[in-house]
Amino acid sequence: MIRHVRVLPVLLLTPLLLTACGSEKAGAGGAPGSPSAATPAAAAPDTGAGELRVRAQAMGVAPELVYVTEAPGFTLAQQSVGVLGDDGFSATWVDGGTNALLRLAVDRGTITAGTCPEQPVGDMSGEHTTCERDGKAWYRTGAGRHEYALPEEGHVVRVSAETDAVPRDVLRAAALAAHRPDTAETDRLLPSAEPAPATPVERGDLPPFGDGAPDNHVDVGG
Results as ranks from 00 to 15, higher is better:
5 V>K: 13
8 L>S: 12
8 L>C: 05
9 P>T: 07
9 P>Q: 09
11 L>N: 13
12 L>A: 10
15 P>H: 10
15 P>G: 06
15 P>N: 09
16 L>I: 04
16 L>R: 15
16 L>M: 08
16 L>S: 11
18 L>F: 08
18 L>S: 12
22 G>I: 09
23 S>G: 08
24 E>L: 15
25 K>W: 12
25 K>S: 12
26 A>H: 07
26 A>E: 09
26 A>I: 03
27 G>L: 07
29 G>A: 15
30 G>W: 05
32 P>N: 12
33 G>M: 12
36 S>M: 05
36 S>W: 10
39 T>F: 15
40 P>A: 11
45 P>G: 10
45 P>R: 14
46 D>G: 07
47 T>Y: 07
47 T>S: 10
48 G>M: 03
51 E>I: 15
54 V>D: 13
55 R>Q: 05
59 M>N: 01
59 M>I: 03
60 G>R: 05
60 G>F: 02
62 A>S: 13
63 P>W: 04
64 E>G: 09
65 L>T: 02
68 V>R: 01
71 A>G: 11
72 P>R: 08
72 P>T: 14
73 G>C: 06
73 G>Q: 04
73 G>F: 01
74 F>P: 00
75 T>I: 11
76 L>R: 04
79 Q>N: 12
80 S>Q: 08
80 S>V: 11
81 V>R: 01
81 V>M: 02
83 V>L: 14
85 G>M: 06
88 G>Q: 04
88 G>M: 03
90 S>M: 13
94 V>S: 02
96 G>S: 10
99 N>H: 13
101 L>W: 02
102 L>I: 11
104 L>S: 01
104 L>I: 00
105 A>Q: 12
106 V>R: 01
107 D>R: 14
109 G>S: 05
112 T>P: 13
113 A>H: 06
116 C>F: 01
118 E>S: 11
119 Q>S: 09
120 P>K: 00
120 P>D: 08
121 V>G: 01
121 V>K: 00
123 D>A: 11
126 G>V: 00
126 G>P: 03
130 T>D: 07
131 C>F: 09
135 G>V: 12
135 G>M: 13
136 K>P: 11
136 K>R: 09
137 A>C: 11
137 A>K: 03
138 W>Q: 08
145 R>F: 05
146 H>S: 07
147 E>D: 05
148 Y>V: 08
149 A>P: 14
150 L>M: 11
152 E>K: 15
153 E>Q: 07
157 V>Y: 00
159 V>Y: 00
160 S>N: 13
161 A>L: 08
162 E>P: 00
162 E>C: 05
162 E>Y: 03
164 D>I: 13
169 D>I: 00
172 R>M: 04
172 R>Q: 09
176 L>T: 14
178 A>C: 07
179 H>D: 05
179 H>F: 06
184 A>I: 10
184 A>V: 14
186 T>M: 08
187 D>M: 11
189 L>K: 05
189 L>H: 03
191 P>Y: 00
195 P>L: 03
199 T>G: 03
199 T>V: 15
201 V>K: 15
202 E>K: 08
203 R>V: 07
204 G>M: 06
205 D>H: 09
210 G>Y: 03
211 D>C: 08
213 A>G: 13
216 N>W: 01
217 H>S: 10
218 V>T: 12
219 D>G: 12
221 G>M: 04
221 G>E: 06
